[in-house]
Design a binder for these strands. Structure first.
Length: 686
DNA sequence: CAGGAGAAGGTTGGACTGAAT
DNA sequence: CCATTCAGTCCAACCTTCTCC
């Protein structure tokens, strides 16, 4: 099949509806596709295995897939949809022709003040940007340069920061890969490894784009140095146990297949993963004041990449500073780790691919293991298929619906609200657990095909802004005897993604017992040029699950579900995990049991009601049963205070939090005051 | 081939230290 | 400048799994 031919079919258009209503609830989306939006896959890509590799974005106004997404958030600015996000093929939002070759657009955007951004966020940023003049540089290989992991630790900080495929808007418009000329398969800089979005990338690509790459010359550093993670280059840092890939990293340790039978070891499954978890999210962080400007950052950093591209030969660059022998070793590594599936024991690779994992893996494996061993001799002679076309998937910060048509992606069991993430310098701290003691469970409803799908998992933000990959946390693959769910890691937009099989025989249900959380050092991330998020006290994350479902018509529906927030620090902040009551009449007086962490005898529980503009309408301290707390407790009993207005006619949503001191507050918890019985009924009869 | 001892590695909780606030 | 908080590192105990005898 011809990728180019298929690319021609791309109708690269998206319809977005933007809601200013923030959402933090799982499964809700502030951004969502319009009901008829789907991500389409060109013909011949019906296999789910291909979905994650060769996705293209496509929106069809005639798509019959309707969204059943129930977010409860209003959709606004519909007037911008068509003009802003629904882009006819071949036409950019600003009216310019679609990019036909990799290029960088240098746009002199002014930075929006923070609040201006907030305001403008409801508007079509593309429109806004469209007024700016754009200078275009053609990139021989955009993809290769965009991959942050392809950049040297020494020089990549700024470069990496620009690699923001995850930046939604840019992703949609800098769709290099959708251009035949931009096909990574032809890309000079798409390293056999680097071209992959998979783990392997870092190895070959580290030196690839950086003339200043120094660590590459040190085979000892190996993958770590070549990862392009500044922090990993620090000689003082010990080899992190996490590099071993979890508790199953030990040689000869038993592995499990999807069905629980032992896997066979294959060359594709390294015993010791050279791929450290620590892939800082190279995405450009979209912050309060950078939601729009972040795209600018992307552009600017893309310029850097373009300059690199134009001033260096891709091939030479790829190996620059690395002895051939070293490069070969690296290639071997990457090829072996490119498919980070559970080892299958004595089976051949082929067996693994075809039997234990859907054909998608087979394809990947072929591509990786085969392609990575070869170093293209000429930038444009690289004709091997790119195994993973992440840019054609929806960017990771695009808000996708959890439900579309018959499909519904649901988190059946939510993760615990606290999970101590581990650092690179630490060993794994295990998989994220569920409150009940098990693990989170995700299920796809409405899928009746026999073809397995791939569930993607990455770590997203949990702040008040739009969901996006978390810059300071990455998902970390956990393996071992206690892990029943197989998984493997891939990189998309330099955000590590865990791919987990969704099997029809399991009712498209997956137990997420294979996902830990890795904390990247703040300094490493913050030093990136373009990174505007700060890591300090930015410790809440959400698990983001995605699934891409191929349709018979060649289109693909992408769904996303997000978990409840997870506090990842080990701080001593109080944490409310459960509350015995979610609602109670305004009269209050009822005792409510809170369970969680770090409740102290002098903890206070404060009920707060805020107006939509954020200012406090009401605040009162609830009576805490001091006897219910002995030293540091996991439970506390509080008396629900009466609401300020006893005559409410409709339910009133308020919040409460547990406070252990001036700056030691738990997250807000929701609570609803109900009107007296009669009124309540009346409310709904209206 | 089974069982025990030891090694290796993963998990977990917490202490320590320096930086930031 | 000091106190507090936080981030990051390190350590130790415990556990599981594997290897060797």
């Amino acid at each position: 099949m011809s990728f180019q031919a298929e690319e021609q079919e791309f109708d690269f258009s998206y319809t977005f509806e933007y809601s200013q209503d923030r959402q933090n609830e799982p499964g809700t989306d502030a951004y969502s596709y319009t009901p008829n939006v789907s991500l389409s896959l060109p013909l011949g890509m019906g296999s789910p295995c291909l979905a994650t590799q060769y996705h293209t974005l496509q929106t069809s106004p005639v798509s019959s897939v309707s969204s059943c997404h129930q977010t409860g958030y209003s959709l606004q600015n519909d007037n911008h949809n068509a003009s802003g996000y629904y882009l006819p093929h071949g036409l950019r939002s600003n009216g310019a022709p679609a990019l036909e070759s990799p290029r960088i657009e240098i746009t002199a955007y002014s930075h929006y003040p923070e609040d201006e951004v907030e305001e403008s966020s409801s508007e079509d940023p593309i429109i806004k940007r469209g007024v700016n003049s754009i200078v275009t540089l053609t990139l021989p290989n955009a993809d290769g340069y965009r991959d942050p992991s392809c950049l040297s630790p020494a020089s990549s900080i700024s470069s990496r920061s620009c690699n923001s495929e995850a930046s939604s808007y840019e992703s949609s418009f800098y769709n290099y890969d959708n251009s035949p000329q931009n096909s990574p398969w032809q890309s000079p800089c798409v390293s056999p490894k680097g071209s992959s979005s998979l783990l392997s990338c870092p190895h070959a690509s580290g030196p690839a784009t950086s003339p200043h790459h120094s660590p590459s010359t040190s085979p000892q550093i190996g993958a770590v140095a070549e990862e392009g993670w500044p922090g990993q280059l620090r000689g003082s840092r010990p080899n992190s146990p996490c590099y071993s890939g979890g508790n199953g990293g030990g040689i000869g340790k038993r592995k499990h297949s999807f069905n629980g039978t032992p896997y066979h070891h294959t060359s594709c499954s390294p015993i010791h993963s050279p791929i450290p978890s620590p892939h800082g999210s190279p995405r450009v962080s979209i912050t309060d004041d950078s939601w729009l400007t972040s795209t600018n950052q992307y552009t600017n950093s893309a310029i850097v990449a373009a300059i690199n591209a134009l001033t260096t030969d891709g091939i030479v660059d790829m190996g620059e500073g690395i002895p051939i022998k070293t490069r070969k070793t690296m290639l071997d590594h990457s090829s072996s780790m490119s498919l980070k599936v559970e080892p299958s024991g004595e089976g051949t690779d082929g067996e693994l691919c075809h039997e234990d994992y859907p054909s998608r893996l087979a394809l990947k494996k072929e591509n990786y293991c085969g392609g990575f061993l070869d170093v293209p001799q000429h930038p444009y002679s690289w004709s091997k298929p790119k195994p993973y076309l992440s840019p054609s998937l929806p960017a990771l910060d695009w808000q996708l619906p959890s439900c579309s048509g018959p499909y519904n992606l649901q988190i059946e069991v939510q993760p615990k609200s606290h999970h101590r993430a581990h650092y690179e310098t630490e060993g794994s701290r295990g998989a994220v657990k569920a409150l009940s003691g098990g693990h989170p469970v995700v299920q796809l409803y409405g899928y009746m095909e026999s073809e397995p799908l791939t569930l993607q998992l990455f770590i997203g933000t949990a702040d008040d802004r739009l969901l996006r990959p978390h810059a300071f946390y990455q998902v970390h693959r956990i393996t071992g005897k206690t892990v029943s769910t197989a998984s493997h890691e891939v990189l998309q937009s330099n955000t590590k993604i865990l791919e987990i099989p969704l099997l029809p025989e399991n009712n498209m249900r997956a137990i997420i017992d294979c996902a830990g959380i890795l904390k990247l050092r703040n300094s490493d991330i913050e030093l990136r040029k373009g990174e505007t998020d700060i890591g300090r006290k930015n410790t809440r994350v959400r698990l983001v699950f995605r699934v891409h479902i191929n349709q018979p018509n060649g289109r693909t529906v992408s769904l996303q579900a997000t978990s409840n927030p997870i506090e990842c620090c080990k701080s001593h902040l109080p944490l409310v995990e459960k509350q015995s009551l979610d609602s109670y009449p305004a009269s209050g007086g009822k005792m409510m049991l809170l369970s969680g962490l770090n409740f102290l005898p002098d903890s206070k529980v404060v009920f707060v009601e805020k107006a939509q503009d954020g200012h406090h309408l009401w605040e009162t301290e609830a009576k805490v049963d001091k006897n219910s707390i002995k030293s540091v407790s996991t439970t506390v009993v509080v008396e629900i205070p009466p609401y300020r207005n006893q005559r409410i006619s409709s339910p009133v949503h308020v919040n409460f939090y547990v406070c252990n001191g001036k700056r030691k507050r738990s997250q807000y918890q929701r609570f609803t005051y109900l009107p007296p019985n009669g009124n309540h009924q009346a409310l709904f009869t209206f």
